[in-house]
Design a protein around this nucleic acid. Structure first.
Lengths: 230, 230
DNA sequence: CGGAACATTGACCCATGTCAAGTGTCGTGG
DNA sequence: CCACGACACTTGACATGGGTCAATGTTCCG
């Protein structure tokens, strides 16, 4: 729960442990994807686990009427495919050119059933992912478009801060449609909200994928309900 | 993922394994709560794990403006408190008189770090909980009040079916407010939607906490997007 | 019987979805 | 180098689902 800021943005898991996992990763194969290529789709056999090396991946479910709910984004360092029993429960699609390390899950499973530490690592990774998903639900379920978008930008900013990137000048790897499907809004509403934030002088938009957070303070008061009082 | 139906209703974990957990449970203390008593609150030290023996518990987060988001309900057989690192990330409050088994988490943790099987059990429990939460997000994020309520009732019905209870005559342990905070709707909308379903002849409401599903077929077509095509 | 808590119903209004048009921006091919 | 098309984004006009506020009903329990 300490990584609250992580939560709202990524539903994937950033693992920085040195153990069986790192070993597997070191010798894991590399895979390159173009934007829009799938890492896996819902229902696929969960044969591999992936770690994002570069690029970005969207995780989502599709409703039968075609609407999409993005449940998280994965960035470099994040693991995806964790927590599938035998089939993947979500689609994973690159949203820009992406490189991945591939770990066969069978081997990992086997190690885990012998190595309690590894198993605990997996357990804790899931725990964090669950917390992230719950936080996303909070953003998504009851809040105005303004609150959602402001919260989204702030979460992104914090993530950048943690990873040594610029927390003020943000490069959004995803389209407005992706943001909309993540926050439960339409493209138009996302766009209008960006415009409104710009008009209020809280952000600048030199290009549509490039956001500069001008008044973080004020953004935070708009996003308001970031989490618990703590 | 096989327990999709489980998902939408409970974000807690129903464990039916015989292992270290069962042992701990057998000798665990019993605790009785009145309705509205807290099992734990957000920020509490996560010293215990609980299994619901009877009654029902709501798990929720509170936004700073006082709105509540219920992230799941726990019914007899469900575990709560799993997945907390050191502090609980949610509030757990009984919604009716409830009995719980209490397991000290320290002991369990210790066993888990020695016993890879136990650790894997925990991992898998979290996996299921995550899937459930994602499914809830789908219900919550993009759907009309009608879809949400119909989906909610069906999920409840299926859960009853799985547990050997009547899947047609449902006894709702929670108030309209609870349902609203779970589905991201207001009390009034929940109530209106129930009324509408009654008018359509799809359900009967002998009492406000008692629902009879008359036309499940039709309810399903209203709920529509239950999940993936699978 | 009276009061508290929960539920229902109605009237109104606004935020957001929908539909439609217009404006970049990028990459490809002539 | 420009023209073109494809695609993403922005902006506007409009409709509506569901939130808000307020009144009334119902159930339960002391």
């Amino acid at each position: 729960m300490q990584n609250v800021s992580h939560s709202a943005l990524s539903s994937a898991v950033n693992v920085s442990v040195t153990n069986g996992l790192e070993q597997s990763l070191a010798q894991a194969g590399l895979r390159r994807l173009e934007a829009k290529e799938f890492v896996f789709t819902e229902g696929d056999a969960a044969t591999h686990l992936f770690r994002v090396e570069s690029g970005a991946v969207a995780l989502y479910k599709v409703l039968i009427d075609g609407r999409r709910q993005i449940v998280g984004f994965a960035y470099p360092g994040d693991l995806i495919g964790l927590g599938a029993q035998d089939e993947h429960g979500v689609n994973a699609q690159a949203i820009k050119p992406t490189r991945l390390r591939c770990i066969p899950v069978a081997a990992l499973r086997q190690s885990a059933s012998r190595d309690a530490n590894l198993a605990m690592t997996l357990y804790e990774a899931m725990t964090r992912e669950l917390a992230a998903t719950r936080d996303l639900m909070l953003i998504t379920a009851q809040r105005s478009a303004m609150e959602r978008v402001a919260g989204f930008l702030l979460a992104f900013s914090r993530r950048n801060g943690r990873n040594g990137l610029d927390p003020v000048n943000i490069e959004l790897p995803m389209t407005r449609a992706d943001i909309g499907d993540f926050l439960g809004l339409t493209i138009e509403t996302v766009s209008r909200t960006f415009t409104k934030l710009k008009a209020l002088g809280l952000i600048e938009l030199p290009q549509s994928s490039r956001v500069k957070l001008v008044d973080i303070e004020e953004l935070e008061s708009l996003a308001e309900n970031e989490g618990r009082c703590s």
